[in-house]
């Protein structure tokens, strides 16, 4: 076959490639130019306390939310999988938080969290608990945890969905064989189910991690990064830098840090998808 010949499928793909070049690659190059216009943009990354705070908080939020969502999602998937009846109902109902527009979900949680008139403190008080110290998103020390809780509520369904699908895809034979060999439930889970589920787990964790490091919508509605800087994340800080303070160059420089993290995840992700 002539190596120089253009592949037959190329014309079919060309429009997509052009659109993506214009809307993804060109903006990236533009971004490099913006950031590089002033070398101070990159050195400032290392001295900017707020950027450091935002980065640390983004990492904390990502790891904490990921860990909780994974364990809860796995537990729920195993639980629903073990039910004899109503599996379809539970699978559907448990997905709803993830499908809602994130802005709407966050609005609902503002109505829940508000220390004075929120339904959470209202219900707790009605049940006889003291709620004066429960400030949720408006307390400096509890705000980040409260934001994480909303993310857990909203995205555990995602882990649940993928892990449920993974569980259903496990062929029954190895489980049967282990049972015949007299293995207990825990042994079967650890030595048979978990290894077979691993590709799905890796995929789900990477997809979720990639989304978590860029978290924006919920925090924008819930706290705008406050109180103070208690829930400031990298995305929020970039947004503010660019669109409140019109410092596009520095915003672009910061966004490359986020890009680097994403690329790390996406390489693993493509490999995980290929492995399936």
């Amino acid at each position: 076959m002539n190596r120089r010949r253009i592949p037959e499928g190329f014309p079919w793909v060309l429009p997509s490639l052009l659109v993506l070049l214009a809307l993804s690659i060109y903006p990236l190059i533009y971004s490099v130019k913006l950031a590089a216009a002033d070398r101070g943009n990159f050195t400032r990354l290392f001295t900017d306390r707020l950027f450091l705070t935002a980065s640390i908080q983004t990492i904390v939020l990502t790891i904490a939310a990921l860990a909780i969502e994974f364990f809860l999602g796995l537990a729920l998937a195993l639980l629903v999988d073990s039910l004899a009846r109503g599996r379809m109902f539970f699978r559907t109902a448990l997905l709803i938080p993830m499908l809602l527009p994130p802005v709407v979900a966050a609005v609902a949680w503002r109505l829940i969290y508000n220390p004075q008139f929120g339904v959470l403190n209202g219900t707790l008080r009605w049940l006889g608990f003291h709620t004066a110290h429960l400030t949720w998103t408006s307390g400096e020390s509890s705000a980040l945890a409260s934001v994480i809780l909303v993310d857990v509520w909203e995205w555990t369904p995602f882990l649940f969905l993928l892990l449920s699908a993974g569980l259903q895809a496990i062929p029954p034979e190895p489980l049967e064989a282990a049972r015949v060999d007299g293995a207990g439930a825990w042994r079967i889970f650890r030595d048979v189910t978990l290894p077979l589920l691993k590709p799905t787990i890796v995929l789900a964790l990477l997809l979720r991690a990639m989304d978590l490091v860029r978290i924006f919508d919920q925090i924008f509605i819930l706290t705008q990064g406050g109180p103070g800087t208690a829930t400031e994340t990298v995305s929020l800080y970039i947004y503010r830098t660019a669109f409140r303070f019109s410092n596009f160059g520095y915003a672009a420089a910061m966004s490359f840090v986020l890009l680097a993290a994403t690329m790390l995840f996406s390489r693993g992700l493509l490999r995980a998808m290929r492995a399936r």
Binding site: L20, L23, S24, I25, Y26, P27, L28, Y30, S31, L34, M210, V213, R214, F216, V234, S235, I238, Y239, A242, F243, F248, A251, A252, S255, F256, L258, L259, T262, F265, S266, L269
Partner: peptide
């Protein structure tokens, strides 16, 4: 390209 965080491309897209 789908994995690019929106906040990375939003500044140049806004200016474009």
């Amino acid at each position: 390209t789908r994995m690019l965080p929106p906040i990375v491309t939003i500044v140049p897209l806004f200016l474009m």
